[in-house]
């Protein structure tokens, strides 16, 4: 009986691999917009130099028309660090219902907050290595996150209902495997906040290659 079950599981897994398709491609990743201005005030002196913000990737994701998605990960908690007076990483994609933790690695306070429609939160002032609350993102949308003290700091959390999403690599390449066959919208969220979308049909065992140039 055990052997039969094991064989059945192997069959299902192999079938799933064969039945699923791959979507890959390359795009020109935009730069993030410059930091929002801080009317009336020059940056206050910081204890250590402010590092340059890291270049953010684009987020590529697939969405179905019916909006029904499986949950592939449970109890997912992403992490966005604050170090050198910048957020790292500056772009994170998570599935709706996941949490994000915001550890402070700088010697001074940070105050992480967002007023985005998809999530309003304010963690208050917290210091280095102090444990701050995990933030639950339970609505899909793009959440712009700032530091109330250091206004040049910002990052994005892209909250998606779909579990099929990836970040582009530094060259703008992306690849999503094990995508169930079907029709999808392939959507891209750029660091510049520009959005691109294209219709794509995933076929069993096939690879769709898409290239997006400026």
């Amino acid at each position: 009986m055990k052997l039969t079950s094991a064989l059945l599981l192997i069959f299902i897994a192999v079938h799933a691999l064969i039945a699923d398709g791959t979507v890959e491609g390359k795009l020109s990743v935009d730069l993030m917009k410059p930091s929002p201005s801080r009317p009336g005030y020059l940056p206050s002196p910081t204890k250590h130099p402010v590092l340059k913000p890291e270049s953010a990737p684009a987020i590529v994701y697939l969405e179905r028309d019916d909006g029904q998605y499986p949950r592939l990960k449970t109890n997912e908690t992403a992490q966005i660090r604050q170090s050198g007076y910048q957020f790292h990483p500056s772009m994170v994609a998570i599935q709706t219902g996941a949490k994000v933790n915001f550890p402070n690695l700088d010697d001074e306070f940070h105050n992480v907050f967002s007023c985005s429609k998809a999530k309003h939160f304010d963690l208050g002032r917290f210091r280095k290595e102090e444990i701050s609350s995990d933030v639950l993102f339970n609505k899909p949308g793009v959440v712009k996150i700032y530091c109330e003290i250091h206004q040049h700091m910002r990052c994005f959390v892209v909250v998606l209902d779909t579990p099929w999403f990836v970040k582009t690599d530094p060259e703008g390449k992306f690849s999503m495997k094990n995508i169930p066959a079907g029709d999808y919208w392939l959507r891209i969220f750029q660091p510049s906040e520009r959005r691109i979308q294209e219709r794509v049909t995933v076929m069993e065992g096939q690879t769709n290659t898409l290239n997006f140039t400026r």
Binding site: F109, R125, F126, R127
Partner: peptide, 13 residues
């Protein structure tokens, strides 16, 4: 002459 003191933590300033 003046003295000033400030404290901030969490939700307080």
């Amino acid at each position: 002459w003046g003295i000033d003191a400030g404290y901030e933590h969490g939700r307080w300033q």
